[in-house]
Design a binder for these strands. Sequence first.
DNA 1: CCTCAGTAGTGCC
DNA 2: GGCACTACTGAGG
Length: 188
Amino acid sequence: MTATLSTRDRTPRTRGENADLMHVTIVGSPIGLVLVARSALGLAAVLLGDDGDELRQELRRRFPLGMFAGADPALDRVAAKIVALIDEPGRAFDAALDTRGTPFQQEVWRALRAIPAGTTTTYSDLAAQLGRPRSARAVGAACAVNPIAIIIPCHRVVARDGDLTGYRWGVERKRALLQHEASARRDR
DNA sequence: CCTCAGTAGTGCC
DNA sequence: GGCACTACTGAGG
């Protein structure tokens, strides 16, 4: 089927170029700091890290022309939901997303959202699922630039041999997320 | 354990 | 259009 993108479709060169305003906040969580950015269209970034300045730099790298403002009530609610989702991975998250990427990236990110908490898939399985069985490496590259951690659960993709391979925000964080999701599922 | 080739998508020139 | 990157994978040493 043809991908009908519910979010804005941008070419690589224009990614992040619109200079719209985003509200930004940084909150603490069991896995470190979480930067949350929200545009008028929805959640635009969830970045993980240990240092607030580094998180702000990463946000700037991803949205070179973005204009950033402090927290607002809608953003606070979304941030609280995200932290809750880290604690209870099975929880639903229904807020709108403003994902910006190439059509291929959008496809990959959409597929990632269908991976249930407590389970994993592999880069090659995901590629096959998208009808591109030889694109495992490209899938990995798309995961690596996922702008919305946790909500787009790229941490649930592992190598075919079970190795965690990589995680934009640290393999140790990926391991922690997966272990917590596995145990949360057992507890149900 | 290692290297290597084949591979698709992306970004920079 | 070219070229050098990847969070890949399977084969071979």
